[in-house]
Design a protein around this nucleic acid. Sequence first.
DNA 1: TCTGGGGTCCTAGGACCC
DNA 2: TCTGGGGTCCTAGGACCC
Length: 446
Amino acid sequence: MYAVIDCNNFFVSCELVFNPQLKGRPVVVASNNDGVIVSRSAEAKKLGIPMGAVIFKWRDTIDHFQVKVFSGNFALYGDMSRRVMDILHTMANKVEVYSIDEAFLDLNEIWSENNLAYGHEIRRRILQWTGIPVSVGIGMTKTLAKAAVEIAKKQPQFGGVYSAEAIDFDDRLDRLEVGDIWGIGRQYSAFLNRNGIYTARQFKYVSDTWVKQNMTVGGQRTLLELRGIPCVQFNHVRERRKGIVSSRSFGRPVETLREMRESVALYTARAIERLRSDHSLASFIQVYITTNYHKREEAQYANAAGFSLEQPSCYTPDFILGAQQALTTIFKPGYRYKKAFIMLLGITPDNQIQLNMFKEYKSDKRDRKLMRAVDILNNRYGRESVGYAASGIGRAWRPRAATLSRRYTTNWFDIPVVMVKPCLPVYLSKAWQAGDKIKRWKDTIA
DNA sequence: TCTGGGGTCCTAGGACCC
DNA sequence: TCTGGGGTCCTAGGACCC
């Protein structure tokens, strides 16, 4: 038996933990660059704001109903996610962290008289310890657990926890759209609809040869899983990523090579940081640049170029240099660029280097030590306390983030204030209201 | 003014090997 | 007359996930 734990409206829920006065109001969280909506409170959903709504097109609704919009604060969400996952690791031996807001638990190794009761206990504990509400789905396969959690979320009478073992499960599947099944996306659900299949229950009883023919082996797995036959592995040990992507839209169009080079250097540095934290090396970097394809009236251009290293590395300067060389070959002046992104490939563990028969192995001991020092400094004093000159300083092209909340859990200066002594909080809260007056904070605390 | 970011898996087709 | 059988690797494109 498996359980899946899914945080409700995760990004919005994170913001509400630190802004409880907003509970009951429509609240949304925007993507990077304040472009589209990626998380919505129940109240915002009720207003009809869809997932992925383009914010400027929904401006009227947002203003009229006083929807609170947060810029995406991914440092905060990542840290809150870690807290939730830590709790789950205390409640099961085998946990598969599936995404920032979701995890599977192997219930087979848990002593519990009643899986449903255990689900409620998980839910209660996470809410109490982190303030994040979650839903729990239980089933014989991961797909069944996912179907159960959809039911738990959409049918409130179950109190956020539902098991596919329930006798009325098939009836519940009847009320689940086929597109809500894990593994059935937009294309397949449109295809199934065209063939008269609308609900999860209908899909469950369709012929598997037909599914195999039309939806390949992935579709067939989904079908068998829905019937209780496990086909999708449970992976409690996280596998090494096969590629690392770092990409950001610009806050305003970029037209000069100088600014493109800055952004590519910055994204490269971030990607290599992630590479190192995975204890991996990469041997290839690909650079992509593109104009804004939404603007049909503007001249369009997109291109990509790569750079191979002689031996796998995690030394940022090597990659910045390579990425900039690649960029130079594809950059064309006269266009208004919207986005640059880089991808690292050829990823290997950092303790297993494939040597090159025709090249002498160059020791990277010093490089690795330097990178370690940089990582330690940035972990201790905040991201980019030490950075690369190539990534620029002013960064007029940086993404928009107009309504960013504080990094309450990962930055000393953003920690919420708890009133301890009667006189001190007055100063603190005033300094708080004054905005980013960190100096005053420091003085007050001193 | 304004449209996200980071991943996985599968298939078909073409190249190659013996 | 007649053109096999069993593989690997790579890439592009398309589906999916959150």
